[in-house]
């Protein structure tokens, strides 16, 4: 399952975009898209400065 974005929290800062190892996340002016290249590695979930992304479970050290 791809990470889920909490739109109310997301600040469109791009931290997850630059950190995604497979370039699956795209920052548009007012939205963030995650495409099917996502490998569910959890990097974006962990790097988000405000925890606006969640991938479920506890496999990435953060919920």
């Amino acid at each position: 399952m791809k990470p889920e974005l909490d739109d109310d929290k997301c600040m469109r800062c791009g931290a997850c975009v630059g950190s995604c190892p497979v370039n699956a996340i795209f920052l548009k002016e007012f939205t963030l898209d995650i495409n099917d290249d996502c490998t569910e590695c959890g990097m974006c979930v962990k790097i988000c400065p405000i925890h606006a992304l969640d991938i479920g479970g506890d496999q990435n050290g953060r919920r």
Partner: peptide, 12 residues
């Protein structure tokens, strides 16, 4: 440092 972020504590 990203690698030091553990658990649920965010930079915020």
């Amino acid at each position: 440092q990203f690698s030091r972020l553990n658990g649920s504590k965010t930079p915020k």
